[in-house]
């Protein structure tokens, strides 16, 4: 959801520090853990059931429990403008994940939105940059490669990938062992309000997810909105003393 400009820098990352060497080399082969029972099921499971070495050569992103269906995140989207500092509280819930097809979807709930009476919920779909289904170059939504580079470089974890991405959008990179998952999230529709709610979903988010601590950082891009609105989310355990995982399976 579009808002205003953000001036805050990304906070220091607390978690496991991986260097470029860790993930630019080809990953060791993953276990063959694709489900093979018939009839073929579409599995939406927090278990990494899509990772397979059956089709070696392609570079699926690592399966990550914290980026699986049912997982919830909360944080803020900074929509500050020159006139005033402003941030909305934001909750996100992952509802679908298909790593093979580089697909993710979920809902985003913006609370304390000034012009809205209720929290505003949107449904979004994500493209996972896996260099098989999607590269770092967006190629749509009014984003040029320059816009892409300008946004991706906002993520420190992207720095080691920059030179190759400039060449081919990262097509030749192997991200299968990368501890970060880069994505684009595009809001598709408002779930609980009409399009006349005063907010726009014309743009999209450049997103970086950390597999090691489940944090999500993002930047909203819409040529007609304030640039670099920053989204910062953390994995939530919803009052539990640990992590819990639900699952569903589509037939």
């Amino acid at each position: 959801m579009g808002g205003n400009r953000c001036k805050k820098d990304r906070p220091a990352f607390v978690g496991i520090i991986f260097t470029a060497q860790h993930y630019q080399q080809r990953a060791p082969k993953q276990d063959l853990d694709r489900r093979s029972r018939m009839p073929v099921r579409v599995v939406e499971n927090s278990a990494p059931s899509h990772v397979s070495d059956a089709n070696s050569g392609h570079t699926s992103p690592p399966a990550c429990s914290l980026l699986s269906v049912g997982q919830a995140f909360s944080g803020t989207q900074n929509v500050s403008s020159l006139q005033k500092d402003e941030a909305w509280r934001v909750n996100v819930r992952i509802q679908g994940c298909d790593l093979d097809n580089g697909y993710l979807c979920g809902v985003m709930e913006a609370l304390n939105v000034p012009m809205a009476d209720t929290p505003v919920v949107t449904f979004w779909e994500g493209e996972i940059v896996d260099t098989k289904n999607y590269t770092f170059f967006t190629g749509k939504w009014e984003a040029t490669p320059e816009d892409d580079i300008r946004h991706w470089t906002k993520f420190p974890s992207f720095s080691s990938l920059l030179s190759q991405v400039k060449v081919d959008g990262g097509k030749s990179l192997d991200l299968s062992n990368c501890p970060y998952i880069f994505m684009r999230w595009k809001e598709r529709y408002f779930v609980n309000v009409g399009t006349d709610c005063g907010l726009t979903i014309a743009g999209f988010y450049y997103v970086c997810f950390s597999c090691s601590d489940g944090s999500i950082n993002g930047f909203y891009y819409d040529p007609n909105s304030s640039p670099f609105q920053k989204l910062e989310l953390k994995s939530t355990n919803e009052g539990r003393f640990g992590f819990s995982f639900s699952s569903y399976e589509l037939q």
């Binding site: 993953q30 276990d31 853990d33 278990a47 990494p48 059931s49 990772v51 399966a63 429990s65 003393f241 640990g242 992590f243 819990s244 995982f245």
Partner: peptide, 22 residues
Amino acid sequence: SNDSRLRTAAVWAIVNLTFPSS
């Protein structure tokens, strides 16, 4: 186990059992 899904599930159980604030 050779099945990484099973290893992952087992590890998360251990993570929760040793969750620091408990």
